[in-house]
Computed example of a mutant assay.
Amino acid sequence: MSQWPDRRILDLLGIELPILQAPMAGATGSAMAIAVGAAGGLGALPCAMLTAAQIAEEIEAFRAACPGRPLNLNFFCHQPPLPDAERDARWKQALKPYYSELGADFEAPTPVSNRAPFDEQSCQLVERLRPEVVSFHFGLPAPQLLQRVKATGAKVLSSATTVAEAVWLERHGCDAIIAMGYEAGGHRGMFLSEEITSQIGTFALVPQIADAVKVPVIAAGGIGDHRGLVAALALGASAVQIGTAYLFCPEAKVSAAHRHALDTAPASETALTNLFTGRPARGIINRVMRELGPMSELAPRFPLAGGALMPLRAITDPQGNSDFSNLWSGQALRLGRHLPAGELTQDIADKALQQIGR
Rank of each mutant, 00 (worst) to 15 (best):
M1F: 10
E16T: 12
L17K: 10
L17W: 01
I19A: 01
L20E: 00
M24W: 03
G26P: 07
A31T: 07
M32R: 05
G37Q: 09
G37D: 07
A38N: 02
G40H: 01
L42T: 10
A44N: 09
L45I: 15
C47R: 15
C47F: 06
C47N: 11
M49F: 14
M49G: 06
A52H: 11
A52T: 15
A52N: 06
Q54D: 10
I55K: 13
A56P: 11
I59M: 12
A64K: 12
N72H: 03
H78P: 01
Q79M: 09
P81Q: 02
D88M: 10
R90Y: 12
R90K: 13
Y98H: 04
Y99T: 13
E101V: 00
L102M: 04
A104K: 11
A104G: 03
P109D: 07
T110E: 14
V112A: 04
S113F: 13
P117N: 15
S122Q: 15
R128P: 09
L129E: 14
L129Q: 12
V134G: 00
V149F: 04
A154C: 01
V156M: 04
S158H: 06
S159Q: 05
S159I: 13
A166L: 03
V167W: 04
G173P: 03
D175K: 06
Y182G: 05
M190V: 14
M190I: 14
M190G: 11
L192C: 12
S193R: 08
S193G: 02
I196A: 05
T197Y: 05
I200C: 13
G201T: 15
G201A: 15
T202S: 15
V206I: 03
A210T: 11
A212W: 14
V215H: 01
V217A: 04
A220Q: 02
I223C: 05
A231R: 15
A234I: 14
A237G: 05
A237V: 13
I242R: 02
I242D: 01
T244Y: 01
A245Y: 10
A245C: 02
F248A: 00
A252H: 09
A252V: 13
S255N: 00
A256F: 13
A257I: 00
L262S: 00
A267Y: 01
E269M: 06
E269T: 03
T270M: 09
T270K: 07
L272S: 06
L272C: 05
N274V: 09
L275P: 02
F276D: 01
F276Y: 04
T277P: 04
R279W: 08
R279V: 15
P280Q: 06
A281T: 04
I285T: 12
V288F: 04
M289H: 03
R290C: 06
P300Y: 03
P300M: 12
A305E: 01
A305V: 07
M310L: 12
Q319H: 11
Q319V: 06
G320K: 12
W328R: 00
G330F: 00
G330I: 15
L333P: 00
L333E: 00
H338C: 08
P340V: 07
T345A: 06
D347M: 14
D350N: 08
D350F: 12
D350T: 14
D350V: 08
L353W: 15
L353I: 11
R358L: 12
R358K: 11
